[in-house]
Amino acid sequence: MTSEIYTLTVNGNDYQILDGHPSESLLWVLRERLELSGSKNACEEGECGSCTVLLDGEIVCSCLVLAASAVGREIVTIEGLGSGNEISDVQQAFVDAGAVQCGFCTPGLLVAIDQLLNTNPDPDDLTVREAISGNLCRCTGYGRILEAVRIASNSRTVQNEEEKGK
């Protein structure tokens, strides 16, 4: 059998995949079939992290996920960050810190950093470096990316304290 029909749940929406070949990676299906081109395709071997998505809440390289095996799992891509036309706090922090140069690694980094701050709102520098060790950036030298994480982390800490104070 060379094709099959299956359904993927991406950013809360169900998408029916028609005529998918069993060998297609999740990254390929996201970009080419669902036209969700935010996740980037660079190495296709799990080295660069530019295709990072959440699979049931954990970061993975979508190039290494067999699309047809992701049926029934919650997939969140860069398009799923923020709400409506509003960008997320991490995205805003990237803008404020100037953490984007060519931008190719940015979607993967944003997904990884958002997930990090969801589990650890106030990570130390080593924890951040470790959390993004699977995301390669060849432009920035990482300084402004680390700065962006600090900005997002601080704003979440302030927000949490305000909520506690209410």
Binding site: G46, G49, L55, I59, V60, C61, V65, S133, G134
Partner: peptide
């Protein structure tokens, strides 16, 4: 092994 992404999978 690898990175957080690889270790999760």
């Amino acid at each position: 092994v690898g990175s957080p992404q690889i270790r999760n999978a």
